[in-house]
Protein backbone atom coordinates (compact mmCIF):
# COMPACT_ATOMS: atom_id res chain seq x y z
CA UNK A 1 0.00 0.00 0.00
CA UNK A 2 1.18 3.49 -0.84
CA UNK A 3 2.82 5.11 2.17
CA UNK A 4 2.11 8.66 0.98
CA UNK A 5 -1.58 7.81 0.69
CA UNK A 6 -1.73 6.31 4.18
CA UNK A 7 0.08 9.34 5.64
CA UNK A 8 -2.33 11.68 3.89
CA UNK A 9 -5.32 9.75 5.25
CA UNK A 10 -3.89 9.81 8.79
CA UNK A 11 -3.13 13.55 8.58
CA UNK A 12 -6.61 14.25 7.21
CA UNK A 13 -8.24 12.20 9.98
CA UNK A 14 -6.20 14.00 12.66
CA UNK A 15 -7.11 17.33 11.16
CA UNK A 16 -10.83 16.53 11.02
CA UNK A 17 -10.80 15.31 14.64
CA UNK A 18 -9.09 18.55 15.70
CA UNK A 19 -11.58 20.60 13.69
CA UNK A 20 -14.56 18.91 15.31
CA UNK A 21 -13.04 19.37 18.74
CA UNK A 22 -12.21 23.03 18.10
CA UNK A 23 -15.75 23.65 16.94
CA UNK A 24 -17.80 21.83 19.53
CA UNK A 25 -15.39 20.66 22.25
CA UNK A 26 -13.48 22.46 24.98
CA UNK A 27 -14.42 23.91 28.32
CA UNK A 28 -17.11 25.07 28.41
CA UNK A 29 -18.42 23.07 25.44
CA UNK A 30 -20.98 25.04 23.49
CA UNK A 31 -24.55 23.87 23.71
CA UNK A 32 -25.04 22.72 20.12
CA UNK A 33 -28.75 22.20 20.37
CA UNK A 34 -29.14 25.75 21.60
CA UNK A 35 -26.82 27.10 18.91
CA UNK A 36 -28.76 25.43 16.12
CA UNK A 37 -32.04 26.53 17.66
CA UNK A 38 -30.75 30.08 17.20
CA UNK A 39 -30.51 30.81 20.94
CA UNK A 40 -28.00 33.55 21.87
CA UNK A 41 -25.24 33.67 22.90
CA UNK A 42 -24.68 30.02 21.89
CA UNK A 43 -25.36 30.76 18.23
CA UNK A 44 -23.03 33.76 18.19
CA UNK A 45 -20.24 31.84 19.89
CA UNK A 46 -20.34 29.13 17.25
CA UNK A 47 -20.91 31.41 14.30
CA UNK A 48 -18.83 34.45 15.13
CA UNK A 49 -16.03 33.15 17.33
CA UNK A 50 -15.32 29.47 16.92
CA UNK A 51 -16.20 29.29 13.21
CA UNK A 52 -13.91 32.02 11.86
CA UNK A 53 -11.14 31.12 14.32
CA UNK A 54 -11.16 27.54 13.04
CA UNK A 55 -11.13 28.59 9.39
CA UNK A 56 -8.39 31.17 9.95
CA UNK A 57 -6.13 28.66 11.72
CA UNK A 58 -6.80 26.07 9.04
CA UNK A 59 -6.09 28.38 6.09
CA UNK A 60 -3.05 30.02 7.72
CA UNK A 61 -1.53 26.66 8.60
CA UNK A 62 -2.08 25.26 5.13
CA UNK A 63 -0.68 28.40 3.47
CA UNK A 64 2.43 28.40 5.65
CA UNK A 65 2.94 24.65 5.17
CA UNK A 66 2.82 25.02 1.38
CA UNK A 67 5.06 28.11 1.31
CA UNK A 68 7.64 26.38 3.51
CA UNK A 69 7.83 23.10 1.63
CA UNK A 70 8.20 24.63 -1.85
CA UNK A 71 10.99 26.96 -0.72
CA UNK A 72 12.84 24.17 1.10
CA UNK A 73 12.75 21.90 -1.95
CA UNK A 74 13.42 24.64 -4.47
CA UNK A 75 16.43 25.94 -2.54
CA UNK A 76 17.55 22.38 -1.69
CA UNK A 77 17.85 23.28 1.97
CA UNK A 78 15.64 22.12 4.85
CA UNK A 79 16.40 25.36 6.71
CA UNK A 80 15.21 27.51 3.81
CA UNK A 81 11.70 28.12 5.09
CA UNK A 82 10.31 31.66 4.95
CA UNK A 83 10.17 32.04 8.74
CA UNK A 84 13.91 31.33 9.02
CA UNK A 85 15.33 33.10 5.97
CA UNK A 86 13.76 36.45 6.79
CA UNK A 87 10.64 36.58 4.59
CA UNK A 88 8.40 36.31 7.67
CA UNK A 89 10.41 38.94 9.55
CA UNK A 90 10.15 41.25 6.54
CA UNK A 91 6.38 40.89 6.51
CA UNK A 92 6.13 41.44 10.29
CA UNK A 93 8.29 44.55 10.24
CA UNK A 94 6.41 45.85 7.20
CA UNK A 95 3.10 45.32 9.00
CA UNK A 96 4.40 47.06 12.14
CA UNK A 97 5.68 50.02 10.11
CA UNK A 98 2.32 50.24 8.35
CA UNK A 99 0.37 50.23 11.60
CA UNK A 100 2.60 52.81 13.30
CA UNK A 101 2.81 55.21 10.35
CA UNK A 102 -0.88 55.16 9.46
CA UNK A 103 -2.06 54.61 13.03
CA UNK A 104 -4.45 51.99 11.72
CA UNK A 105 -4.37 48.20 12.00
CA UNK A 106 -5.73 48.04 8.42
CA UNK A 107 -2.33 49.20 7.16
CA UNK A 108 -0.88 45.88 8.28
CA UNK A 109 -1.82 44.17 4.99
CA UNK A 110 -0.05 46.47 2.48
CA UNK A 111 2.82 46.82 4.95
CA UNK A 112 3.25 43.06 5.27
CA UNK A 113 3.11 42.53 1.50
CA UNK A 114 5.67 45.27 0.83
CA UNK A 115 7.93 44.15 3.68
CA UNK A 116 7.76 40.50 2.68
CA UNK A 117 8.52 41.26 -0.97
CA UNK A 118 11.45 43.51 -0.07
CA UNK A 119 12.91 40.96 2.32
CA UNK A 120 12.57 38.16 -0.25
CA UNK A 121 14.24 40.28 -2.92
CA UNK A 122 17.05 41.30 -0.59
CA UNK A 123 17.74 37.80 0.75
CA UNK A 124 17.64 36.11 -2.66
CA UNK A 125 19.90 38.68 -4.31
CA UNK A 126 22.42 38.79 -1.44
CA UNK A 127 22.56 34.97 -1.32
CA UNK A 128 22.94 34.65 -5.10
CA UNK A 129 26.26 33.12 -6.12
CA UNK A 130 25.53 31.72 -9.56
CA UNK A 131 22.49 30.08 -8.01
CA UNK A 132 21.31 30.48 -4.44
CA UNK A 133 24.13 29.45 -2.13
CA UNK A 134 22.61 27.40 0.73
CA UNK A 135 24.96 28.70 3.42
CA UNK A 136 24.76 32.34 2.29
CA UNK A 137 20.98 32.05 2.23
CA UNK A 138 20.77 30.99 5.86
CA UNK A 139 23.34 33.54 7.06
CA UNK A 140 21.75 36.41 5.14
CA UNK A 141 18.25 35.34 6.23
CA UNK A 142 19.11 34.99 9.90
CA UNK A 143 21.06 38.30 9.91
CA UNK A 144 18.17 40.08 8.23
CA UNK A 145 15.75 38.62 10.78
CA UNK A 146 17.91 39.98 13.62
CA UNK A 147 18.18 43.41 12.00
CA UNK A 148 14.44 43.57 11.38
CA UNK A 149 13.59 42.44 14.92
CA UNK A 150 15.79 45.20 16.29
CA UNK A 151 14.27 47.73 13.91
CA UNK A 152 10.78 46.71 15.06
CA UNK A 153 11.82 47.09 18.70
CA UNK A 154 13.16 50.59 18.01
CA UNK A 155 9.97 51.47 16.15
CA UNK A 156 7.81 50.24 19.03
CA UNK A 157 9.88 52.13 21.63
CA UNK A 158 9.45 55.36 19.67
CA UNK A 159 5.73 55.05 18.97
CA UNK A 160 2.97 56.25 21.31
CA UNK A 161 1.84 53.85 24.04
CA UNK A 162 -1.56 52.77 22.69
CA UNK A 163 -0.24 52.15 19.20
CA UNK A 164 2.79 50.29 20.53
CA UNK A 165 0.57 48.02 22.61
CA UNK A 166 -1.70 47.32 19.67
CA UNK A 167 1.26 46.56 17.39
CA UNK A 168 2.89 44.32 19.98
CA UNK A 169 -0.34 42.39 20.32
CA UNK A 170 -0.49 42.10 16.52
CA UNK A 171 3.09 40.81 16.35
CA UNK A 172 2.24 37.87 18.60
CA UNK A 173 0.96 35.21 16.23
CA UNK A 174 -2.55 34.23 17.27
CA UNK A 175 -5.89 33.20 15.78
CA UNK A 176 -7.87 34.48 18.77
CA UNK A 177 -9.03 37.72 17.14
CA UNK A 178 -10.31 36.01 13.99
CA UNK A 179 -13.44 37.25 12.27
CA UNK A 180 -15.07 36.26 8.99
CA UNK A 181 -13.19 38.98 7.11
CA UNK A 182 -9.71 37.70 8.06
CA UNK A 183 -10.84 34.07 7.75
CA UNK A 184 -12.22 34.81 4.28
CA UNK A 185 -9.10 36.65 3.09
CA UNK A 186 -6.86 33.85 4.31
CA UNK A 187 -9.03 31.09 2.80
CA UNK A 188 -9.07 32.69 -0.64
CA UNK A 189 -5.31 33.33 -0.40
CA UNK A 190 -4.60 29.72 0.56
CA UNK A 191 -6.79 28.38 -2.27
CA UNK A 192 -5.15 30.58 -4.92
CA UNK A 193 -1.72 29.72 -3.53
CA UNK A 194 -2.56 26.02 -3.61
CA UNK A 195 -3.58 26.25 -7.27
CA UNK A 196 -0.46 28.15 -8.34
CA UNK A 197 1.95 26.01 -6.33
CA UNK A 198 0.31 22.75 -7.46
CA UNK A 199 1.00 23.84 -11.03
CA UNK A 200 4.66 24.51 -10.16
CA UNK A 201 5.25 21.55 -7.82
CA UNK A 202 6.40 19.27 -10.66
CA UNK A 203 8.99 21.85 -11.72
CA UNK A 204 10.10 22.54 -8.15
CA UNK A 205 10.72 18.83 -7.57
CA UNK A 206 12.92 18.71 -10.70
CA UNK A 207 14.96 21.73 -9.58
CA UNK A 208 16.25 19.46 -6.81
CA UNK A 209 18.41 17.77 -9.44
CA UNK A 210 20.14 21.03 -10.29
CA UNK A 211 19.51 23.51 -13.09
CA UNK A 212 21.21 21.42 -15.80
CA UNK A 213 18.78 18.55 -15.36
CA UNK A 214 15.81 20.89 -15.02
CA UNK A 215 16.69 22.65 -18.29
CA UNK A 216 17.18 19.31 -20.01
CA UNK A 217 13.69 18.30 -18.90
CA UNK A 218 12.27 21.36 -20.64
CA UNK A 219 11.86 23.63 -17.60
CA UNK A 220 12.98 27.21 -17.16
CA UNK A 221 14.58 27.34 -13.69
CA UNK A 222 14.70 31.12 -13.29
CA UNK A 223 11.05 31.51 -14.22
CA UNK A 224 10.07 28.76 -11.79
CA UNK A 225 12.15 30.33 -9.01
CA UNK A 226 10.64 33.76 -9.56
CA UNK A 227 7.03 32.53 -9.64
CA UNK A 228 7.41 30.21 -6.66
CA UNK A 229 9.26 32.77 -4.54
CA UNK A 230 6.63 35.41 -5.32
CA UNK A 231 3.78 33.03 -4.50
CA UNK A 232 5.34 31.75 -1.27
CA UNK A 233 6.16 35.31 -0.16
CA UNK A 234 2.58 36.38 -0.84
CA UNK A 235 1.23 33.49 1.23
CA UNK A 236 3.52 34.30 4.14
CA UNK A 237 2.90 38.08 4.01
CA UNK A 238 -0.87 37.74 3.94
CA UNK A 239 -0.82 35.18 6.75
CA UNK A 240 1.25 37.64 8.82
CA UNK A 241 -1.21 40.42 8.01
CA UNK A 242 -4.23 38.43 9.23
CA UNK A 243 -2.81 36.31 12.05
CA UNK A 244 0.54 37.86 12.92
CA UNK A 245 3.72 35.79 12.66
CA UNK A 246 3.11 32.16 13.68
CA UNK A 247 6.63 30.78 13.69
CA UNK A 248 7.90 27.34 12.63
CA UNK A 249 4.76 26.03 10.89
CA UNK A 250 6.33 26.75 7.49
CA UNK A 251 9.56 25.23 8.73
CA UNK A 252 8.06 22.04 10.17
CA UNK A 253 5.31 21.07 7.70
CA UNK A 254 7.56 20.04 4.79
CA UNK A 255 10.01 17.83 6.71
CA UNK A 256 7.15 16.14 8.62
CA UNK A 257 5.28 15.52 5.35
CA UNK A 258 8.39 14.11 3.62
CA UNK A 259 9.16 11.88 6.59
CA UNK A 260 5.57 10.59 6.68
CA UNK A 261 5.38 10.04 2.93
CA UNK A 262 8.81 8.39 2.86
CA UNK A 263 9.90 10.31 -0.20
CA UNK A 264 11.60 13.59 -1.12
CA UNK A 265 9.97 16.44 -3.03
CA UNK A 266 7.38 19.06 -2.18
CA UNK A 267 4.54 16.64 -1.21
CA UNK A 268 2.41 19.78 -1.40
CA UNK A 269 -0.97 18.38 -0.33
CA UNK A 270 0.40 16.55 2.67
CA UNK A 271 2.47 19.59 3.71
CA UNK A 272 -0.69 21.73 3.58
CA UNK A 273 -2.52 19.17 5.76
CA UNK A 274 0.37 19.01 8.24
CA UNK A 275 0.59 22.82 8.36
CA UNK A 276 -3.14 23.11 9.02
CA UNK A 277 -2.94 20.42 11.72
CA UNK A 278 -0.03 22.19 13.44
CA UNK A 279 -1.84 25.53 13.39
CA UNK A 280 -5.06 24.03 14.68
CA UNK A 281 -3.23 22.04 17.34
CA UNK A 282 -1.34 25.13 18.51
CA UNK A 283 -4.61 27.07 18.60
CA UNK A 284 -6.23 24.30 20.63
CA UNK A 285 -3.39 24.56 23.15
CA UNK A 286 -3.80 28.34 23.08
CA UNK A 287 -7.36 27.80 24.29
CA UNK A 288 -6.18 26.01 27.43
CA UNK A 289 -5.50 28.02 30.57
CA UNK A 290 -1.87 28.05 31.72
CA UNK A 291 -1.17 29.49 35.19
CA UNK A 292 -4.35 31.47 35.07
CA UNK A 293 -3.80 32.93 31.59
CA UNK A 294 -3.81 31.74 27.96
CA UNK A 295 -0.72 31.78 25.76
CA UNK A 296 -0.99 32.66 22.04
CA UNK A 297 -0.68 29.90 19.39
CA UNK A 298 2.69 31.26 18.17
CA UNK A 299 4.26 30.39 21.52
CA UNK A 300 3.28 26.75 21.13
CA UNK A 301 4.53 26.43 17.53
CA UNK A 302 7.83 27.95 18.68
CA UNK A 303 8.00 25.49 21.58
CA UNK A 304 7.78 22.58 19.10
CA UNK A 305 9.64 24.23 16.24
CA UNK A 306 12.79 25.53 17.92
CA UNK A 307 13.95 22.13 19.27
CA UNK A 308 13.05 20.52 15.93
CA UNK A 309 15.25 23.06 14.16
CA UNK A 310 18.11 22.28 16.52
CA UNK A 311 17.67 18.55 15.88
CA UNK A 312 17.71 19.13 12.13
CA UNK A 313 20.87 21.24 12.36
CA UNK A 314 22.61 18.56 14.40
CA UNK A 315 21.55 15.90 11.88
CA UNK A 316 22.88 17.96 8.98
CA UNK A 317 26.14 18.29 10.89
CA UNK A 318 26.31 14.49 11.30
CA UNK A 319 25.55 13.97 7.61
CA UNK A 320 28.42 16.21 6.62
CA UNK A 321 30.90 14.07 8.58
Amino acid sequence: MNRALISTAVAAATLIALMVWRLIGGDPAPDLAAAFAGIEPERAILLHFRGPRLILALATGAALGMAGTVLQVMLRNPLASPDIIGFGAGASTGAAVGIVIFGDIAAAMPGALAGGALAALLVMSLAWRDGVSPLALILVGVSLTLILTTATDILLSLSPGVLATETTRFLTGSFASADWRTAGIMSVTALIGAGVLAAYAVAVDRLEHGDDVAITLGLEPNRVRLAVTACATGLVAISVAVAGPVPFIAFLAGPIARLAAGRPGTVLGLAALVGATLALGADALAGLPVAGTRLPAGIYTALIGAPAMLALLLRLEVDRK
Partner: peptide
Protein backbone atom coordinates in the same frame (compact mmCIF):
# COMPACT_ATOMS: atom_id res chain seq x y z
CA UNK B 1 13.24 18.37 -24.32
CA UNK B 2 11.37 15.66 -26.24
CA UNK B 3 14.10 15.57 -28.88
CA UNK B 4 17.29 16.19 -26.91
CA UNK B 5 18.39 14.56 -23.66
CA UNK B 6 21.46 15.40 -21.57
CA UNK B 7 23.05 13.75 -18.57
CA UNK B 8 25.43 16.05 -16.67
CA UNK B 9 28.58 14.74 -15.10
CA UNK B 10 27.35 14.88 -11.50
CA UNK B 11 23.58 15.25 -11.35
CA UNK B 12 22.11 15.82 -7.90
CA UNK B 13 20.16 12.89 -6.47
CA UNK B 14 17.74 13.97 -3.73
CA UNK B 15 18.14 11.95 -0.55
CA UNK B 16 15.73 9.02 -0.37
CA UNK B 17 14.35 9.10 -3.92
Amino acid sequence: ARRLGFLPQAPQTPEGI
